[in-house]
Nucleic acid binder design. Structure first.
Lengths: 285, 285
DNA sequence: GGTGGCGATAACCTGGAGGCATGACTGATC
DNA sequence: GATCAGTCATGCCTCCAGGTTATCGCCACC
């Protein structure tokens, strides 16, 4: 069997992210030649070149693209296996819920209250994730359930149920030309500066303006007139003074979803999902 | 990060299957002490015992059960990543279809003919799998698409479309007390001897009688009056002389499904699925 | 109490992963 | 076009993880 150690896979993924041997090696806390050798080793073992390198440039071959894609899943799976093993059998383990700070649309306390009344309720650890990796917390077992936003978060490999649907609003300074409108279309926003989101490859889809790290930063930038934003309404309620929120009518609605790993079968999770949905029966998945 | 090398994971899985250090080590082509050390190493690294061992007996702890479950997926994912990388970019690679011998309900030639007319049709390699692991061929990338039977095969992690639904028939020797009936219920078969299927843990659900390896063997056993069987009709058409097939009306129907790895996006696969379903558009997944 | 099966331990060996120093290539600069 | 800076590859050395064989200790079973 053509084997590939997780160590090597991790090296590969890191290099595929950085596209720079020196930086990747630093991130991995090894010396650069070691990484060079490891990658070459993997390439010969698989019989396929993964990178085209010149002394000025590193890029992925198609095979490398494929390995990056699937290798990420594989690493997640290994991580998930380890974490599940470590927590298994520990009947008093807590339930870990991951969400984005402020990203609960006000539903969290209700959910927790309902869950607490379940006969088999556990303590709940609430984890706040970085900007873009909530889903990965679920995929690699760092969390059991999560509150995610569709269609922003990638729900691949996860089961989910929608908790709440809402339209999105354009956030504008009060003096903006569109601030008086009852609603706008995306085309009305043509030419406006939209943010790039820090840590999200591609900046979250829409923007090409300055980078922002969170909603607070974004609102500040909008207040000073440097950009505008388009967000699910609940993320910015209540709206700070000096800003207006105008519904955007032609954008797909944003959904707050409760998500958990596909194939998850532990009652621990099923019970929470049931409570969160306010149903009497276990959800299908 | 608490890491776990694929090598170690493979050792663990093998031992979890065998529950015997000597045999597992032999299967892995290493010496027994090496396996002992490797497993102990993993246990200390994860901080969780995976096996309870006496000098007479080895069994899994709950943590071990969890790691066995999820670890298998992880190994599949690594295998899939490797295979995808090796085949990526090779525009002339063939499409690999896995099925059980005879398990196509007569649909295969039609499917292949339709596929051959697709503008981007490739050569098709047909793989015949062992009794129970067709789905694994898809999960770890050894095949691109497969013909599986629901609800027999485990479709977890796979996308699928139903090609054909059929009832199941009880296969009886002509002289059997029920051979004249127009239909039977499962309860009518109470007390009959049903086969265990070789290579399928649990024997495939129903039986506890002698072990059989394939349909031909089963039919032989039925002919000589040693057992009866319950199978999807197409698997036993045409019926050999001396046997009768009586529809079983209260069992969920058997479905022949076309399956492929979830998240699969290559046109190679989409194109085949489209052709097999005889549609004009790509299937959703 | 002897025996055989099985897992753990001990002692040793070795391939290869990783570190350091340096070479080789290349695009940029003046 | 010579020089330089940045970047990846190579050569050589070290050291340990993971392998081997031999042996022990435990237990079940005659």
């Amino acid at each position: 069997m053509t084997d590939l150690e997780t160590r090597e896979l991790e090296y590969f993924i890191t290099l595929a992210d950085e596209l720079h041997f020196g930086r990747a090696a630093a991130r991995l806390s090894i010396a650069q030649p070691a990484l060079s050798k490891a990658i070459r080793r993997v390439e010969t073992r698989l019989g396929v070149p993964l990178f085209v390198r010149s002394s000025r440039h590193v890029e992925l071959t198609p095979a490398g693209e494929a390995l990056r894609e699937h290798g990420r899943h594989a690493l997640n799976a290994v991580g998930a296996a380890v974490r599940h093993a470590q927590r298994a059998g520990d009947a008093r383990s807590r339930l870990r819920l991951v969400l984005k700070p402020g990203g609960d649309a006000g539903l969290l306390s209700g959910i927790l209250a309902r869950y607490a009344q379940q006969p088999d309720a556990r303590q709940v650890d609430i984890l706040f994730s970085g900007p873009a990796d909530r889903a990965d917390f679920l995929r690699d077992g760092r969390a059991d359930v999560g509150l995610l936003y569709a269609p922003f978060d990638d729900l691949g490999g996860l089961a989910h149920e929608t908790l709440h649907t809402e339209d999105r609003v354009a956030i504008l300074p009060s003096g903006h030309r569109l601030a008086g409108r009852a609603s706008v279309l995306m085309s009305d926003l043509e030419g406006e500066t939209l943010p790039r989101w820090k840590g999200i490859p591609g900046g979250g889809g829409d923007g090409d303006g300055p980078e922002v790290a969170d909603v607070v930063q974004l609102l500040q930038m909008i207040t000073v007139g440097r950009m505008i934003g388009v967000l699910p309404r609940s993320l910015v309620e209540p709206l700070p003074p000096g800003l207006r929120g105008v519904p955007v009518t032609d954008t797909p609605p944003s959904r707050l979803v409760l998500a958990w790993p596909e194939h998850e079968r532990r009652p621990l999770v099923a019970s929470f999902v049931t409570a969160a949905l306010g149903r009497d029966e276990a959800p299908h998945d």
